[in-house]
Design a protein around this nucleic acid. Structure first.
Length: 526
DNA sequence: ATCGGCTCGCGCAA
DNA sequence: TGCGCGAAGCCGAT
């Protein structure tokens, strides 16, 4: 693994390490990223350190794994990695299962030759995995898990914390900026960008190890004999097989099919990253909003499931840029360009990767109202939408009609067709997709429900803080009022297919994604 | 084609 | 306290 040339401090640490010891040093995980979920003690007399991998599904660039390795070395205990995929989680389908299973297979292969014991668990039926974590934790000196601020993961971790008799530590490997570095949410990307420009520098000096298991001293070897005997009856789980035949045997939603062109896993993720940086990045700034030119990075599914880390993306990008932290401008003032001191293409990508991706994580973490509730919208947006909630609508579609792409608007139907077929919508048309759902639903609250339902069900990067950023932007989050006031929208920003078609080329897009084959699995028409 | 105005709230300079 | 600025808006003037 090449060292990150761009980090001055990191290079210094590595040079010092090379001078004293030929082997590498392990830099500790920043305490700002650590959180105790219960008041239970470390139990050093027990058999192993347990890493419960739930969100950061990767073996490198992972502060959580790195923290577990730290514990294992400090206690002289082996490391057990437990990665589970439940059958009964909301929206579980062939699409998401295939993606995650691909990563689990890689982890099994990658960890096979190491001292680490990897326990993948693919739940055969809802509820079968109940009690597994508790049983494993019964012999653990400490349990480390992932701190992801959305979906059901927080609730699941909190519930586990209450049941365990040993310390459960949650680690935040979500962003370049730790969640606890801000202590608040931000009303606009501009405000968050200004914060990042003021405070990110120090966090750039604390990067996770690309290979935490191989960096630092040797780990004690784990033996299956250490595992609690009552687990034998639960193992192995359903086979780690993402083929249609194997998926068909699992009680998950088979009507949301696998997206073949976006395979899951850390290898596919790294490949997508390299292909983007080597190929499309140079055109990113000017062409990213053109729906017919596929210039986007395509990384969000991998970032969502944790197969790729934002630190890894940043490292790869900035190493290619020949960048160092010395290029950072002293002040940014919230401006979109100029602060990084990188190429214009890199700066425009960094604004997506850092500003827009991470503002959503801090929204999920700190917004006083739940990030997925209508009430979490800014006051001006709620006021204006509520005032127009009863306005007459020219078209009102049900969730099932939206899902089947049965609207009068071919461009909208194409965007929905892309979502169903590819698990994503082009970033520009996604905004239009949402704006029209607002316009064609009986109320803004129903529009919100429709957007969340469709996005969670079909988008590979759904159920992520970023998805909620996109959905809530449609309703005014991170935005400002725009005159003139109009029906349904009030002063929330309006968009139309006609103007979109005027501004960008969509003919070929409409042709490509016209949903001639309807999805077979549908929400009930009600 | 491009520009200002519409509108709110933040960061920053003063 | 005032000024500049902002994810993709529209409209009318030039």
């Amino acid at each position: 693994m090449t060292p990150a040339r761009w980090t001055v401090t990191r290079a210094r640490i590595q040079a010092a390490a090379a001078a004293s010891q030929p082997s590498e040093v392990a830099v500790p995980v920043p305490t700002l990223r650590l959180r105790d979920l219960n008041a239970q003690p470390l139990r050093p007399e027990r058999d192993y350190v347990l890493y419960w991998m739930t969100a950061f599904r990767r073996t490198g660039w992972n502060f959580s794994l790195q923290r577990a390795v730290e514990h294992a070395r400090a206690l002289g205990r082996p490391l057990v990695v437990f990665e589970a995929l439940r059958a009964g989680y909301p929206w579980a389908s062939d699409r998401f299962h295939a993606f995650v299973i691909e990563g689990m297979r890689e982890h099994a292969a990658r960890l096979a030759g190491t001292p680490v014991c990897y326990l993948p668990y693919l739940e055969p039926a809802p509820g079968d995995g109940r009690g597994l974590l508790e049983a494993l934790a019964g012999r653990a000196a400490v349990v480390v898990t992932d701190d992801f601020p959305a979906f059901f993961l927080r609730r699941m971790a909190a519930a586990a914390a209450a049941r365990l008799d040993v310390r459960l530590e949650a680690v935040d490997a979500n962003g370049l900026l730790p969640l606890r570095a801000t202590g608040r949410s931000f009303p606009t990307a501009f405000a968050f960008r200004a914060f990042v420009q003021k405070h990110l520098r120090e966090h750039l000096e604390q990067f996770p190890e690309a290979d935490p298991i191989g960096t630092g001293g040797a780990l004690a070897p784990a033996s299956p004999a250490l595992l609690p005997p009552q687990l034998a009856s639960r193992w192995p789980s359903a086979p780690l097989d993402p083929s249609p035949g194997a998926l068909a045997r699992l009680p998950i939603d088979h009507r949301v099919p696998v997206v073949r062109e976006t395979p899951g896993g850390t290898v596919a993720g790294a490949h997508a990253l390299a292909a983007f940086l080597d190929g499309r990045l140079s055109r990113y700034k000017d062409e990213r909003n053109q729906p017919e030119l596929d210039v986007a990075s395509g990384l969000s599914p991998y970032l969502h499931f944790g197969h790729v880390s934002v630190h890894q993306v940043f490292d790869a990008l900035m190493t290619r840029e020949g960048w160092t932290t010395r290029r950072l401008a002293p002040k940014g003032g919230g401006q979109r360009e100029g602060w990084w001191g990188a190429s214009p293409a890199a700066e425009s990508f960094l604004d997506e990767l850092i500003t827009w991706r991470e503002v959503g994580f801090h929204t999920c973490e700190y917004l006083p109202e739940d990030y997925d509730k209508y009430e979490s919208l800014p006051g001006w947006a709620r006021a204006t939408l509520d005032r127009h909630a009863d306005d007459p609508r020219a078209h009102v579609y049900s969730l099932a009609q939206f899902e089947r792409a049965e609207t009068h608007d071919p461009l909208w139907n194409a965007a929905q067709g892309q979502l169903v077929r590819e698990g994503r919508i082009h970033n520009y048309l996604r905004m239009l997709w949402g704006k029209k759902i607002l316009e064609w639903s009986a109320s803004p609250r129903e529009a919100l429900d429709v957007m969340i339902a469709l996005n969670n069900k079909y988008a590979l990067d759904g159920r992520d803080p970023n998805s909620y950023s996109g959905i809530f932007w449609v309703l005014g989050r991170y935005d400002r009022p725009w005159a003139p006031e109009r029906p349904i929208f009030g002063v929330v920003r309006y968009m139309s297919s006609e103007n979109t078609a005027r501004k960008v080329r969509v003919k070929e897009y409409v042709r490509r994604y016209a949903p001639e084959a309807r999805p077979t699995g549908l929400f009930d028409s009600r």
